[in-house]
Design a protein around this nucleic acid. Structure first.
Lengths: 222, 222
DNA sequence: ACCTGAACACCGTTCAAGT
DNA sequence: ACCTGAACACCGTTCAAGT
């Protein structure tokens, strides 16, 4: 043991270790307690009783930390499948779980859209999606594209949804007003169809419909 | 004319007017010359020879300015349709134009994903999509969902693509390496299928395929 | 050798004070 | 009344200097 635990350790009993995992732990705690907008290098460093520079010893940059965090979130999902549950049901349940997990941590979906998680649990997730699609008879190449597409949509939908929640739900009203005011000359289709179009159905029902649309399309071309 | 042009105008002949439109003009010029990452309130204010505070007289916040800018970008698209071109071809061409426009301005797709454009030209875009889908026999409600889905995918695909371009294309290699290294025990499907899966096809071909998948799925359920 | 205080070069937004 | 300088409250990242 070349390195001694500092004597002052007892003074701050909660101080976590400064390691790659310790940093992700701290980030996770902040995410749960304060939401993704509090996830800054400075805030995480403060949680670990150090300065932001120290984090760069263990993590290349804020993006890499984000990808580590998302991989840890994916680790909390149930990614098992024994083959008893029909593949389509299992796929719906998987994507619903994934969406719910992102929705439970406001703001995290936004980073998930741009970050390549690139961790072991992310690979588990892709593995299960590919297994389900392959079982369904989808050829490897379309299955790869469908996997991308399904995850991209699930992530984008949550990001859009909780972006809207941040701005107090009023933007939906704004859009409805805009559509209602559609000029019959310039926007005859929108005027004729009305604004009710964009509001129907719960998020869950809409998501399930979209997943089925994508699956039907992929199966038809596979 | 209650307000006189300042005498000092001749000194700075290029100084644009400080109006809502003038601000969007300045933002557009910066976007073209320096890319979206330069689009900050401070940089735009500097372009207009004033301080950032002045912009807040004409624009609520940075998000609103972003949505005005995106609406102006959409204005540059060809949104006509005389009915001669088959609806499916026209839809492909429209989304290809939209993607190309976003791709021409690195970084803008990212903001387009989270901003609700909410301007007249955005409505023109939705109008055309709804018209094409309605012509194809899609009922109003699925047409609304398909419109959302098609635009969301086009935007997300460009955002992801030029996010990757920023980081020097190397992340694709990272993913290939990760997939190649997939543990046969833990990730048998990925191991068996190999990494070639995720790389095939140009962006354009992939996008076209995805559009057809979505359209087939929607038509099958409409 | 390992870690970090302090600095660098930025942000968006607000508001008191000027014209 | 309209506009804005200066300040407020932050960012991510770097690097020279300490232990």
């Amino acid at each position: 043991m070349a390195r001694q635990t500092p004597v002052s350790r007892r003074e701050r009993p909660a101080k976590p270790a400064l390691t790659r995992d310790g940093i992700v732990d701290a980030a996770m705690a902040i995410l749960v307690a304060e939401g993704a907008q509090a996830l800054t290098m400075r805030r995480i460093a403060a949680e670990l009783d150090t300065g932001p520079a120290s984090l760069y010893v263990y993590v290349r940059n804020a993006t890499e930390l984000s990808s580590l965090l998302i991989d840890r979130l994916i680790a909390s999902l149930d990614l098992s499948w024994d083959g008893a549950e029909p593949w389509r049901d299992r796929l719906h349940r998987l994507l619903a779980d994934y969406s719910a997990m992102l929705a439970a941590h406001p703001g995290i979906a936004r980073s998930a859209l741009f970050v390549w998680p690139d961790g072991p649990h992310y690979l588990d997730l892709i593995e299960l999606l590919m297994r389900l699609l392959t079982t369904a008879g989808v050829r490897p190449e379309p299955a790869g594209r469908a996997t991308d597409l399904l995850l991209q949509h699930a992530t984008a939908a949550v990001a859009e949804w909780d972006g809207r929640r941040d701005r107090g739900e009023q933007n939906l009203g704004d859009l409805v007003a805009t559509l209602d005011a559609a000029d019959p000359e310039r926007h005859p289709t929108l005027h004729a169809l009305g604004s009710a179009l964009f509001v129907r159905g719960s998020h869950e029902e809409r998501s399930a419909w979209i997943i089925d649309v994508m699956l039907d399309g992929v199966l038809a071309r596979s």
